[in-house]
């Protein structure tokens, strides 16, 4: 039989207990002291007082942010075999709102986008036993003529494309009415001015509300301490993007913020062998993405939810 909490509570003095006020206070003080010990440690790998007291990304002054960046770069250098890291904080480009379009008629389901994303964004490689691997992109094999996501197959393992199927890669849709940012109790995730939905990994408390709220299953949680081989780690990072994460925080696709804010294409687009993926500035009337929206048969996944995504699917 399960004990109820009241069964284990200490009895009051009136019931003959030997716990007195002085002893109780000593115990509380000792417990508090032991709890504070990790904070007093100076080993950067174990616990950092600076990290513990670090502010939200948008509450830091320029000087504070510079100190944080320097600390993070040093930490990563120690962790990843003395590799020099660059943690960028490139702001959104003026007059830019990102959008992504994916051609379902051209995608062959080769999963190269998912693997390129893992390498570019320093995702946890995971292990077979634990099943804790992280991949932002999930390629769904769908039967032709059907849009039933529940009957899609994530785990196909045969030469592609299958003649009776089409392939629908799903990743973060960077919604303009994002359910995931609304539910965050600490505002650790938000949408930037260029439309990218980001996470402040140092501010995230790991409650996973956002994961539950996302209708596209686009968020991933670090159940384990992320493992990235030294030789594969990407040292060109962004504070809100692909810098190495800790155990217990949420992460997601950021449209490769470390690349796209410099004008480059995301890694998934670069690797795509069929050119199914298109990316650009939706505010630019001359952009490829604008041409697609104006001229192609475009649809939004789960449009009825009113999430207003920045990610479009199209056929041609």
């Amino acid at each position: 039989m399960t004990q109820r909490p009241s069964d284990t509570q200490p009895q009051g003095e009136g019931n003959g207990s030997k716990v007195n006020r002085r002893g109780f206070l000593k115990t509380v003080a000792a417990t508090a002291g032991v709890s504070c010990l990790p904070i007093l440690q100076t080993d950067a790998n174990a616990f950092s007082l600076d990290a513990f007291l670090q502010k939200h990304f948008y509450e830091m002054s320029k000087e504070e942010l510079e100190r944080v960046i320097e600390r993070l770069e040093n930490e990563y250098k120690k962790t990843y075999n003395k590799k020099e890291f660059r943690v960028g904080v490139d702001p959104p480009l003026a007059g830019v709102r990102f959008a992504y379009a994916l051609n379902l008629a051209k995608c062959i389901g080769c999963r190269r986008c998912a693997k390129a994303c893992v390498k570019e964004n320093n995702q946890h490689r995971g292990s077979e036993e634990r099943g804790d691997q992280i991949e932002y992109i999930r390629v769904l094999e769908m039967k032709k003529g059907s849009l039933d996501l529940e009957k899609s197959n994530h785990y196909y393992d045969h030469p592609v494309p299958d003649k009776d199927s089409y392939y629908m890669p799903v990743q973060c849709h960077h919604c303009n009415a994002a359910p995931c940012t609304k539910v965050c109790p600490v505002e650790a995730t938000w949408q930037e001015a260029d439309g990218i939905v980001v996470v402040d990994y140092n501010w995230c408390i790991g409650c996973r509300y956002c994961e539950a709220a996302c209708p596209y299953w686009a968020r991933r949680f670090n159940f384990s301490k992320p493992r990235i081989p030294d030789e594969e780690v990407n040292t060109n990072t962004h504070y809100l993007g692909n810098r190495p994460r800790e155990k217990g925080v949420m992460e997601k696709c950021t449209f490769c913020i470390q690349r796209t804010r410099k004008g480059l294409n995301p890694a998934c687009l670069e690797i795509c062998p069929t050119g199914s993926r298109k990316f650009g500035n939706i505010l630019d009337p001359q952009s490829e993405i604008r041409y697609i929206i104006e001229n192609k048969r475009v649809f939004i996944l789960k449009e009825e939810l009113g999430t207003d995504p920045s990610f479009y699917y199209f056929f041609d």
Partner: peptide
Amino acid sequence: RFRGVVPEAKPVPRLDPVSEPTAESHG
């Protein structure tokens, strides 16, 4: 016409690595 390719490794099922779904089962 594009020829078929062998896809990259499938993702590892997170919660149930023991029972592997087949192509017919759709997960």
